[in-house]
């Protein structure tokens, strides 16, 4: 059951972890992404900020093909996302092939989306056992290590409803890491948390960044972006307005829209 990614989908992306080229996305008549060009190098932590409705979450969802893009090209780890190219023609990938691509991308959601009928351990074990075909014993052992790593070694048997928001989000991070992804996507991972729980999640993410994980983080945590991010992207109205080194963008924004946004959140 381990599908490999088809040959035609390989090649391209220029050795980058994520490469987006003129990506457009519309919902009905509303164009949410209006030509996004972005590059994420292996090991890079890119933070994406911007007002709500600017398209930053949509972009993240396009990267692992939860949304289909309407125009442009997206590569992750050298694979064209969602399609196979033969000559000039694009072929849609089958569900199985899309699933295979998603295995190298971990995603953490704003609302955690833990499986409520499984314990913390069950949540982390599920994908390795079902998708990778790992033995239950091995998956359990690895899941316990991962939960330990996010500081929840004593909560393995708890159901999500018995955990705080911050603990749930840390389980969700462990769950994504269990698939040993090459890239982690975070969609406003702390926005649904009570203020006093934000820190514990950011700490786990910071440790992950220090361990060399490639991360794209959509966030409102400017402090995190400044401290942990290698690059910062400001999006507004479906376009990348400004990008650069976090410290520089934050202290000396070049574009008036960036300045306007930062003046409201800082």
């Amino acid at each position: 059951m381990t599908d490999t990614i088809p040959e035609g989908a390989r090649a391209g992306g220029d050795g980058l972890m994520v490469k987006a080229e003129k990506v457009h996305k519309s919902f009905g008549r509303v164009e949410v992404l209006k030509g996004i060009d972005l590059e994420v190098k292996p090991g890079e932590v890119m933070c994406v900020i911007g007002p709500s409705g600017s398209g930053k979450s949509t972009f993240l969802r396009c990267v692992n093909h939860l949304e289909k893009i309407n125009a442009g090209r997206l590569w992750v780890n050298g694979h064209l996302v969602g399609y196979r190219q033969k000559g000039d023609k694009l072929y849609e990938l089958r569900d199985r092939e899309v699933s295979a691509q998603r295995r190298e991308i971990g995603m953490v959601f704003q609302r955690f989306n833990l499986f409520p009928h499984m314990t913390a351990l069950g949540n982390v074990m599920e994908a390795p056992v079902r998708v990778k075909g790992e033995s239950k014993a091995k998956a359990r052992e690895r899941a316990a290590v991962l939960l330990e790593r996010v500081g929840l070694g004593d909560k393995v048997g708890n159901y999500p409803a018995q955990l705080s928001g911050g603990q749930q989000q840390r389980v969700a991070i462990a769950r994504a890491l269990a698939m040993e992804p090459a890239l982690m996507l975070f969609d406003e991972p702390t926005s649904a948390l009570d203020p006093e729980l934000v820190g514990e999640v950011l700490d786990v993410m910071k440790q992950l960044a220090l361990d060399g994980m490639t991360m794209v983080v959509v966030t409102h945590e400017i402090g995190f972006a400044r401290e942990v991010g290698d690059s910062l992207v400001f999006m507004d109205d479906g376009v990348v307005v400004e990008k650069g080194v976090p410290r520089e963008v934050l202290s000396n924004p070049q574009h008036p829209r960036t300045r306007d946004f930062l003046s409201k959140v800082l």
């Binding site: 998603r102 959601f109 079902r130």
Partner: peptide, 24 residues
């Protein structure tokens, strides 16, 4: 969001239905 989380982990539609959606 449950289906999305399962898809993001690389689970197939059948697996998602059987393991995640139907039990809930």
């Amino acid at each position: 969001g449950q289906q999305e989380a399962a898809s993001a982990l690389g689970m197939s539609r059948m697996q998602t239905m059987r393991r995640i959606v139907l039990p809930q």
